[in-house]
Design a protein around this nucleic acid. Structure first.
Lengths: 201, 201, 201, 201
DNA sequence: GATGAATGAGCCTTCATTCAT
DNA sequence: TATGAATGAAGGCTCATTCAT
C-alpha cells in the first residue's frame, strides 16, 4: 500500500485532523459523516483512508491533537519561578483557550469526554491528557510547598484536581450559557487559590 | 393512534425511560439502538412508539427525568435554617448521587450534556435543570448574606456557579478515574466553602 | 364471533365506508392508515374489524359502493323513451357526479382504477361496474337502431365504450386542471353524438 | 457524497429508471420495495441513492421519462403538412404505444396519474406532459383552421382535449379488458375526427 | 498517492392486525 | 358489540468502508 513521504504525511494528517475537528465541533462525532470530513478537507475518501483507518481513529487523532496542544501550553506557561504566578499563568492560558469567544475547543472537549466512555483508546488519550497536566500542576504545588510558599497540609493532588475540575465545570457552563464571563471565572479562581493552596495573599 | 389512560401512561413511560436510561448509560445515546431499548423494557417497538415518538424524544425524557430528580433533591435538602448546613446538605446529596460507586448517573449526565450540543430540546432541558438548582443555591447564599453569615462582597451567582462547576468537574474525573474519593471531594468542598462565601469557619 | 343485527350492521358499514372513502380521497389508499379511518369514523380498531376484515376489503367496499351508486344513476336516468334524450340524461348525470366542483368522486375513481391493477377483487368490481353501465348504454343504442333513430352501421358496443372513454378521460383532465368546464365537456359530447351514433341532429 | 461523471451518470440513471419502471408496472409504486428495484437494476442500495434521493424521486423520474418519450413521438409524427394526416399519425403513434399488446406503458401511465394526486412534483410532471402535446395538437388544428381545412367554429383546445380524453379513456379500458382492439379504437377515432374538427371527409 | 463510485449491513420508524377486557 | 393497548414484520434510507483505476 502506498506510504507517504514523512513531510507530506504530517501535513496531510494535520489537514485531515483539522477538517475532522471542525466537523466534530459542528455536528458532533456521531452526526458527522465521513463524507462531511472528506468535503471539509477537500480530499477523497480513499485519500483520507490512506492516513486514518477508521472514523474512530479520526476521533482519537483529534483528541490526541487537543492534548498535545495542552501539553505545550503547560510547558510554555508553567515554567515560572514563582508557583502562584506559574499557576495563574497556566490558568489564564487554559481559560483563554477554553472559555473564550469561540466554542470549537469546548465542543471538541465535550465530544472527546463523551466518546471516552465508549472508546478505550480515547479514554486512554483523555487519561494521558489529564495526567500530564495534573502532574505538572502537582509539581508546581509541591515546589510551592517545598519553598514554604504553600502550606504543607495541602494535598497537592487534590488541589490540582480541584483546579482542573473548576476549568472543566466552567467549560460546560460556558457551553450552556455563552454569557458566562471569562474574567469572572479567572477572578473566582484567583480568589480561591490561597485557600486551595494554603497561603496568604 | 391509540392514546393511553393516564394511569397506565405514567407507569409505562417510567418503565420505558428507565430502560432507555440503562441503555444510554451502557452504550451511549448513539450506539444504543431502539431494539436495545425495546428488549430492555420488554416491550415491542410499536408499544414504545405509543409513548415516545422518536429516539430523540427518549433522550429528552431521560434528561428531564434526571433534572426532576435533582429538583427534588434540592427541595428536600436545601430546606435548612443554617445556610452553611443547607449548602453542605445539598452538596452531600449531589455528591452521593453523582460521585458514588455506580456510574450510571454520571454517564447519563455526560450523555445529556453531549446531546445538548445538538438537540435544542435537550439543551433547554439542561438549562432549566441548571437554572433551578442554581437559583436555589443563590437563594441560600443570599439568605446567608442577609443574616450576616456571609460577606456581602460575595457574588452569589458566581459562588453558586463555582459549586456547580466543582461538582461537574469532579463527576468527569470520577468517570476517568474510578478511584477518586467521594470523601476527598467533599472535604475539598468544605475546605473551600469559607473562602467561596466569605465567612470564617 | 359477534355478528350484528342486520339494521345496525348496514348503518355501521355505511359509516365505515364513508370514512374510508373520505380518507382514500384525501390521501389515497396506500397513504391512508387504518388509524386514519378509525379516527374519521369515530370508531375503534376492533369495531371496524368486526365489519371489514382487512384494509383491502375496505377498498373493495368503497369501490362496490361507488359502482352501486352508478347503477342507480343509470337506472334512474336511462329509463326514457327517446334514446338520444336517454343517453344525454345519463351523460348529464355522470358528468354532474364526476366532473363537478368536488373532487372526491374523481379521486376515488382514480384510486379504484389504480388498485384494480393489483387487487383482483377490485378488478372484478371495476369490471362489473363497467359492464353494467355499458350494457345499459348498448341497450339504449340498440333500441335507437331498432327504431330507425340511429344508423344500423353503428357498432353499439364501441359507441358505448367511446362514451365511457370520454367520461373517464375528462375525469382525469379535471383532476389535473380544475378549470375544465363541465358545460364544455357536455357540449362536446352532444356535438359528437350524431356522428357517434349515426343520426342527423 | 460521490458525484458522478456526466457520461456515467446518464447511463446509470437510465438503468435505474428502467428498473423502477419495470417494478412499478409490475407491482405498482406502493407495493414496490426499493429492494425490488435494487435487485431489478442489479445495483446496491447505496449506488441507487447516489442518483436518486428517495423513492418519490424515482417515481418522478419514471414519469418524466414517460413524458419525454411522448414529446419525441409528437415531434416526430406531428410534423406533416396535412393536418388530418398529422393528427392521425400522432394518434397512431400514441395508440401503438399505449393500446398495444404490452401493458407496461399503460400501467405506468395509470400509476403516474394516481401518484399525481398526492405528489406535487408528479402532478407538475403530468401537467407539463399534457400541456406540451396538447399545445402541439392545438397548433395542428389551428393550422387546419387557418388553411380552411377545418371549420373556424371549432374550439381547438376542446378538440385537442377530447382527443386526449379518448386516448386516456381507452387506455383504461384496455387495462380492464385486454381484448379491446387497437384497430377498433383507431377506426372510431378516425370516424369521429370530421365531426370533431368540422370538416367533410 | 489520489480518486470516487459502489457496497450492504443495519437502523429508525410505521402500521395492519390482534385480543384481553 | 366495542375498546384500545400491544404486537412485530418489513420498509426506506444512511453511511463507514473498499477497491479498481
Amino acid at each position: 500500500m502506498p506510504r507517504v513521504k514523512p513531510e507530506r504525511k504530517a501535513a496531510r494528517e494535520a489537514q485531515i485532523i483539522e477538517a475532522a475537528r471542525a466537523c466534530f465541533a459542528r455536528n458532533g462525532f456521531h452526526k458527522t459523516t465521513l463524507q462531511d470530513i472528506f468535503a471539509e478537507a477537500g480530499l477523497s475518501a480513499g485519500c483520507v483512508y490512506n492516513y486514518f483507518q477508521s472514523k474512530d481513529e479520526l476521533m482519537l487523532a483529534v483528541a490526541d491533537a487537543r492534548h498535545l496542544v495542552e501539553s505545550r501550553m503547560i510547558a510554555e506557561e508553567g515554567d515560572v519561578h514563582d508557583p502562584v504566578a506559574g499557576l495563574m499563568a497556566v490558568a489564564r492560558a487554559f481559560a483563554a483557550a477554553y472559555l473564550g469567544q469561540f466554542e470549537e475547543s469546548r465542543r471538541i472537549a465535550l465530544e472527546t469526554w463523551s466518546e471516552s466512555l465508549r472508546d478505550l483508546a480515547v479514554l486512554n488519550s483523555v487519561r494521558r491528557g489529564l495526567d500530564g497536566p495534573r502532574a505538572e500542576l502537582v509539581r508546581l504545588i509541591e515546589h510551592g510547598k517545598a519553598t514554604g510558599r504553600f502550606s504543607t497540609d495541602i494535598d497537592a493532588d487534590m488541589a490540582a484536581r480541584t483546579m482542573i475540575a473548576l476549568l472543566h465545570g466552567f467549560m460546560l457552563q460556558k457551553l450552556w450559557d455563552t454569557k458566562l464571563s471569562l474574567a469572572a471565572v479567572l477572578a473566582t479562581f484567583e480568589h480561591l487559590l490561597p485557600s486551595l493552596l494554603g497561603y496568604v495573599r
